[in-house]
Design a protein around this nucleic acid. Structure first.
Lengths: 158, 158
DNA sequence: CGCAATTACTCAGGGCACTGATTAATTTAA
DNA sequence: TTAAATTAATCAGTGCCCTGAGTAATTGCG
């Protein structure tokens, strides 16, 4: 008793949605390159020479995660890191030819996958879907712990 | 050139939505218990004595992930595992008193958090939000690689 | 100028999520 | 009834995602 219906919890639905996407991506786009990795490639196609932190900001990955993703893409030879001569803290990132080729290939497959993923919705519903998701995400982003006060611990420790 | 607008990619939006939720959960609900962990507690409140695999099915976690989550909750003393006397492969799961207390506390906080999370949407929009997310997730779930054919590799290896 | 604050990146650590392989128990079918 | 197939759980491996702490370079202020 007192249990809740998880299908009315936005967080639960968000997680399921993301998992569903992950699985479809694996079957329809690539088992080698992940969706966040594609987002990074895409950002560097639009803006070559960006530094790591800025790329992370563009695609919505924190400093640690973007470092890992970049390192994997580098190991696979899809991008190059060079130290910024103007600012020795930064690494400037640029796709290799192989990286460009991969991006091109995945762009086509991703478009196909998105169609399949959104097929259950009508065109108007798809617009609403984008609008609602964007609005909720953007609003939550503005809430990032402005007070610096974390959630209270569960146990009132003696 | 040839770069795509990620905000029209449902997968990217799904990931951002989930991240936004993760962060809000950390500040408004708990830094100790995660949202998937709460989902497990909630399932066991509704159906005590379920086995591990079935709990995973209920909350949408695969065999490996549910095993880790269960093990963490067990270590924290929130649930008990006992071998099923009827079927020696299964472990039957049941919340401890501490587990029940934790679930009660989090239920209240989660309800508050959901309100904040969905605040940018009107009541009607919230219903649409739920409906669209459920429909897309459910449909994608039915697509789980029925052919058994994975995405082709990127490189046509020699 | 020189020191403090800021900034970019790295590292350690915890948790979620999947696949493929393995082990042990149960069920099915020959 | 015994061998084969199935099933529940574990383990190893990869990748995403976050925080907090640490290092090196740069910037800004007194």
């Amino acid at each position: 008793m007192a249990a809740v219906d998880l299908t009315t919890h936005p967080g639960h639905l968000a997680r399921r949605l993301q998992q569903a996407h992950y699985l479809l991506w694996n079957t329809m786009v690539s088992e080698e390159i992940t969706s966040p990795q594609f987002a990074v490639l895409n950002t560097l196609v639009a803006e070559p020479g960006l530094d790591q932190r800025t790329v992370g900001e563009r695609v919505g990955l924190d400093r640690s995660t973007i470092a890992e993703v970049i390192s994997r893409l580098g190991r696979r030879g899809l991008l190059d890191k060079v130290r910024d001569p103007q600012d020795g803290r930064r690494f400037l990132l640029r796709l290799t030819d192989e990286g460009l080729r991969t991006h091109r290939k995945l762009t086509v497959r991703t478009a196909r996958m998105n169609q399949v993923f959104l097929a259950p919705l009508s065109a108007e519903e798809q617009s609403v879907f984008f609008d609602l998701l964007r609005r909720v995400s953007d609003a939550a982003e503005g809430l990032r712990n402005p007070t610096g006060r974390p959630a209270e611990p569960l146990a009132a420790r003696s």
